[in-house]
């Protein structure tokens, strides 16, 4: 009997994160990291405090923020341990758990902060 891999769980999260980051990732990075800070194509105040707070208060906005942060982390962390394997590093069960745990911790922190910010 060959043992069933638990990859389906983490591969689904990897795939979902890969899809979200492929669909809107480049634009998101451009908007928050380049356009708004430089005032290039978008005004400096597009990400101003009141607006971002309103986004974080809105249930749909909360969901969007949590999904982006969580899935980006799960996507990246899953690929990261494959990277280690590709570089010839033996990936132990503990290292895999650490990678997925890191993503889970990031998700928990994001959800906690969104709850703290309130509705």
């Amino acid at each position: 009997m060959i043992r069933r891999s638990n990859k389906p769980v983490f591969w689904s999260l990897f795939g979902a994160g890969g899809m979200v980051s492929a669909l809107i990732g480049p634009m998101l990075v451009f908007v928050t990291g380049i356009a708004v800070p430089l005032g290039f194509l978008l005004p400096h105040d597009a990400l101003r405090y009141e607006r971002m707070l309103a986004l974080a208060h809105n249930p749909a906005g909360k969901l969007a923020l949590a999904v982006v942060i969580s899935l980006f982390l799960f996507h990246g962390c899953h690929r990261f341990y494959h990277c280690l394997h590709d570089f010839g590093i033996h990936v132990t069960a503990g290292m895999k758990a650490a990678c997925h745990g890191f993503a889970a911790a990031g998700t928990a922190l994001a959800v906690y902060l969104l709850l703290v910010i309130g509705f």
Binding site: M1, I2, R3, R4, S5, H82, D86
Partner: peptide, 14 residues
């Protein structure tokens, strides 16, 4: 399916 589902089945591919 048992071969597919194992760690060294399709999940060995990146």
């Amino acid at each position: 399916m048992e071969v597919i589902n194992g760690e060294n089945g399709v999940w060995g591919c990146t």
